[in-house]
Simulated assay, not measured.
Amino acid sequence: MADGAPDDGPSLEMPSLSLRRRARGAGPTASSRPTAAPTREVPPTPDPAPGRELPRVPVTGLPAAALTGAAVGGLAVALAWLAGVGCEAVRGTSACGGGPGLLLLVVVLALLAWAGSLLLRLLGVPRAGSTSVLAVGILAVLVLVFLLGSLDTWRALVAVPLASTVAFGAAWWVTTAAGD
């Protein structure tokens, strides 16, 4: 092996499971294969395409968390409005109440955490998932404590994204401090 001689033993390389055909002229020809059983040549896995990874945006750290918080806050307002419209269409009132309301709340919070994580990852913020989940939890507490009575007014259009920006900034600070 040290002298550069080829090894005829088993290979430790992972097999390629791609079903794509190999380009003509690449690899062994049909005449050089053993004739015992016809086999199909499996090409190696292609290199990943350059457009497959998320593009990086030059905003990182606290500005990225604040930008994500504002976007997630706007999404929270939109989802709350859609939930109210949906409940009014189904039940005749803007409050779903009970089981359906709790399920809707959990779905909205999960969507907000997922969207925040995706945006933070897009902006290149480390620990994006934990930052987003913590921020959405902080946002939920802030809304319950300070904004619950005014969610039906126009002030919620400003207050919820502002509270979300503060929540994402605080969550970024906590996860960065805890990570270091």
Rank of each mutant, 00 (worst) to 15 (best):
L54M: 14
L119V: 00
P46R: 14
E88N: 13
D47Q: 13
G124K: 01
A113L: 03
P48W: 07
R127W: 03
V145T: 12
A37Q: 15
A49E: 12
V133G: 10
L134F: 04
T60C: 08
V72G: 01
P58L: 08
L79W: 05
V133L: 15
C87E: 10
R121N: 13
R91D: 11
W81P: 00
W81D: 11
V143A: 00
A70R: 01
V107D: 04
S117H: 07
L144S: 15
A64T: 03
P43T: 08
V42F: 09
A65E: 05
T60Y: 08
L120I: 01
A64D: 06
G137M: 09
L62E: 02
L144F: 13
A115V: 05
A89C: 02
G51V: 09
V108M: 10
A89Q: 12
V125Q: 13
A83E: 15
G99E: 13
I138M: 12
L118G: 05
G124I: 10
V106D: 07
T93W: 00
G92F: 01
V90C: 06
A78M: 10
L79K: 05
A64R: 03
L104T: 15
G86S: 09
S94I: 04
S32Y: 00
A66E: 01
L79M: 14
G99F: 12
V106H: 00
A66D: 01
